Computed example of a mutant assay.
Amino acid sequence: MSLRHYLRRPPAISATEAVRLVAQGAVIVDVRREFEWNRVHIPGAVHMPLEMLLARCMELPEDRLLITFCTGGLRSAGAANLLVENGFEAVNMSRGLIDWRAAGGPLTP
């Protein structure tokens, strides 16, 4: 993934808003590494590590909002930009897992 994906601020939402949007049908795209996913993840999230995102993004639904997610929000910001450039409606969940947990979002250990 190019450095340019990290230089722009993608559309961003809070974890509280993400919890609400997921309940309405949005899809969480978890771009963390395998070991992070195995430790804890959001139920129903699509696991697509950042290094595989460009090669696999066509597997994602084109008719639903995609919410990119990582531990702190940096990797997922680049992922949201990449998805938008590839024609998806995507936003970054700022502060990632940290705020998701604080917003009461469900987690699977």
Rank of each mutant, 00 (worst) to 15 (best):
residue 41 H to L: 12
residue 43 P to Y: 05
residue 67 I to H: 06
residue 76 S to K: 04
residue 101 R to H: 14
residue 77 A to M: 03
residue 59 E to Y: 09
residue 19 V to F: 02
residue 69 F to V: 08
residue 101 R to T: 14
residue 91 V to A: 15
residue 60 L to F: 05
residue 58 M to E: 14
residue 99 D to R: 13
residue 71 T to M: 13
residue 31 V to L: 04
residue 47 H to R: 07
residue 26 A to M: 04
residue 31 V to W: 02
residue 84 V to A: 13
residue 64 R to C: 03
residue 41 H to V: 12
residue 53 L to N: 02
residue 77 A to V: 05
residue 42 I to Y: 03
residue 38 N to A: 14
residue 102 A to L: 15
residue 103 A to G: 14
residue 86 N to L: 07
residue 90 A to Q: 02
residue 90 A to I: 05
residue 91 V to G: 10
residue 62 E to C: 13
residue 96 G to Q: 09
residue 100 W to N: 08
residue 94 S to H: 12
residue 76 S to H: 01
residue 66 L to K: 08
residue 31 V to S: 00
residue 75 R to F: 04
residue 18 A to P: 06
residue 92 N to A: 09
residue 55 A to G: 11
residue 100 W to M: 06
residue 64 R to Q: 05
residue 44 G to I: 00
residue 23 A to H: 04
residue 87 G to V: 06
residue 47 H to V: 13
residue 49 P to G: 01
residue 63 D to G: 03
residue 78 G to T: 02
residue 48 M to P: 08
residue 57 C to R: 06
residue 35 F to Q: 09
residue 21 L to T: 02
residue 24 Q to N: 12
residue 63 D to P: 08
residue 26 A to Y: 03
residue 52 M to I: 12
residue 41 H to F: 05
residue 42 I to M: 03
residue 22 V to M: 04
residue 39 R to I: 15
residue 70 C to M: 12
residue 91 V to E: 02
residue 56 R to S: 11
residue 78 G to A: 01
residue 49 P to K: 05
residue 26 A to N: 01
